[in-house]
Amino acid sequence: MRKMVEWNTKAKILSDKEQEYLVNFAYGLKKINEFHENNLKRHLKKMQESGFEL
């Protein structure tokens, strides 16, 4: 997830709120549950469509 944060910081694909949401989980500020996992997968898909690679 940290790689996603770093990539999006440069690419600006996600909105500011989506970026903040991702940061909260990437740096352990919030715990992931099934609901959040689905949202993070949706953000990942959006980033992959714009060129992000795992």
Rank of each mutant, 00 (worst) to 15 (best):
V23D: 00
M4W: 02
E18S: 02
K17A: 14
F25I: 02
M4Y: 05
E6H: 09
I13V: 15
Y21G: 04
L22C: 08
E37R: 13
V23P: 00
K31C: 03
R2L: 09
E37P: 01
F25E: 02
S15I: 03
L14Y: 13
S15V: 02
K31V: 05
T9K: 15
L22M: 13
E34T: 07
F35H: 09
I32V: 15
K17N: 13
A26M: 05
K31T: 04
Y27T: 01
R2I: 09
E20N: 07
V5H: 10
E18I: 01
H36R: 06
V5T: 12
T9V: 04
I13Y: 13
K30D: 06
L29V: 02
E6T: 10
S15N: 05
D16E: 15
Y21F: 15
N24F: 11
I32F: 04
H36N: 10
K12G: 04
V23E: 01
S15D: 12
E34I: 05
F35V: 04
N33E: 12
N33H: 09
E6R: 15
F25G: 01
K31A: 06
K30R: 14
E34S: 13
K10Q: 14
I13A: 14
L14G: 12
A26L: 06
N24I: 01
K3E: 15
L29H: 11
K30V: 02
K10W: 10
T9L: 15
Y21L: 08
G28H: 00
G28M: 01
E37D: 06
N8K: 07
E18L: 00
L22G: 08
G28I: 00
L14C: 12
M4V: 05
L14T: 06
K3P: 05
A26Y: 04
R2F: 10
Y21A: 03
K17I: 05
I32K: 14
Y27M: 02
E18Y: 01
K31I: 04
E18P: 02
V5L: 12
A26I: 03
Q19H: 15
F25Q: 02
Y21S: 04
H36M: 03
L14W: 14
I13L: 10
K31P: 05
E6A: 15
I13N: 10
E37M: 06
E20A: 08
A11E: 15
E18V: 00
W7I: 06
E34H: 08
M4I: 03
K17F: 11
I13F: 11
A11Y: 05
I32A: 12
Y27F: 10
E6Q: 14
E34L: 12
I32D: 08
K12Y: 10
K3Y: 08
K17Y: 12
Y27W: 11
N33F: 04
S15C: 10
T9G: 15
T9N: 15
H36F: 04
N24W: 11
E37K: 12
N24D: 14
Y21I: 01
S15Q: 09
V23C: 00
A11L: 06
V23H: 00
Q19M: 13
I13S: 11
N8S: 12
I13T: 15
Y21R: 12
F35M: 03
A26F: 07
W7D: 02
L29S: 03
L14S: 11
T9H: 11
